[in-house]
Simulated assay, not measured.
Amino acid sequence: MMDHRTLFLSIILLPWMLSSAAKNRFLEVKKPKNEIVTISDYDTLGDSDTSPVAGASTDDSELPTCLLCVCLTGSVYCEEVSPEMTAVPALPKETAYLYARYNKITKITNKDFADVATLRRIDLTGNLISEIEDGAFAKLTLLEELTLAENRLAKLPMLPAKLISFNANFNRLKTKGVKSTAFKKLDKLSYLYLGNNELEAIPPLPESLRIVHLYRNNIATISDQTFCKTNDTHYIRANMEEVRLDGNPLLLAEHPKSFLCLRALPIGNYH
């Protein structure tokens, strides 16, 4: 009786068990591989191809500047950058306005602005600039405003022809460091700020000037031709609105003919 029962179980159950095992193995083989999803570590997302830093559409040459500074359309703001900025940064193309104030820039080279001919305004106030190579601004044909106040300049380079405003207050400019043609040919220059320097003479000034600040220098004398034309008694310097000569070792009362062509007397010491 036991043999028949065993035979019965073997005939009925064994095929069923084998069929079930085979089915399970079949399902294992067919199991989709993508059911196991690997989630990226958040700490490594910045290194992915889709991050702003590594994206293929981003110009790598512009990244350092625009990570350290604020880059808006046409404008770059690099003020009091940390870590310290010791040189003019590489600028995105088509930059029109650069503000790199209060950093540790020491020198401006001919290469710094060679590829950014679109610049209209540069402000480098409060750096440590003691040297500017003579052709540093040569290609900036659109530059209208240049501010180099609060630096360590003893001489000036050649300036762009279309400048409207130039500010070099609080430097170490000396007369021998300012060429006689430095401003004379700038026929659009309206605002010239050279206060708190070491100038001993007033350089030739363009007719276009409206405001000139020369306060707190070492200017001890001026001539009748500094502002006027001695051979033309009817000449009036129509554009000039303000001349500041206060803080110089200069007694203006000793040079009355020097101001006959001006609409207003210079600000300074008359007694």
Results as ranks from 00 to 15, higher is better:
6 T>F: 11
7 L>I: 13
12 I>E: 04
13 L>E: 09
14 L>K: 05
17 M>A: 15
19 S>W: 14
23 K>P: 03
24 N>F: 11
32 P>W: 06
33 K>S: 11
34 N>A: 15
53 V>K: 15
53 V>E: 09
55 G>A: 09
55 G>K: 12
59 D>M: 10
59 D>P: 13
63 L>H: 06
72 L>S: 06
76 V>D: 01
76 V>F: 01
77 Y>L: 06
83 P>T: 04
85 M>H: 05
90 A>Y: 06
99 Y>M: 14
102 Y>F: 09
105 I>R: 00
117 A>H: 05
122 I>L: 07
123 D>H: 10
124 L>E: 00
132 I>Q: 01
132 I>M: 07
135 G>E: 03
138 A>M: 05
142 L>V: 14
143 L>N: 01
146 L>N: 01
146 L>M: 05
147 T>W: 04
151 N>T: 03
158 M>A: 06
160 P>C: 09
162 K>H: 12
164 I>N: 03
167 N>A: 08
170 F>C: 13
171 N>V: 04
172 R>N: 13
172 R>Y: 12
175 T>P: 04
178 V>Q: 01
179 K>A: 15
183 F>K: 03
185 K>G: 13
187 D>C: 07
190 S>C: 08
208 S>N: 06
209 L>S: 05
221 T>C: 13
222 I>H: 00
222 I>C: 02
225 Q>K: 10
233 T>N: 08
235 Y>K: 08
236 I>D: 15
237 R>S: 05
238 A>N: 12
239 N>I: 15
243 V>P: 00
245 L>T: 00
261 C>R: 11
263 R>W: 08
269 N>M: 14
270 Y>G: 03
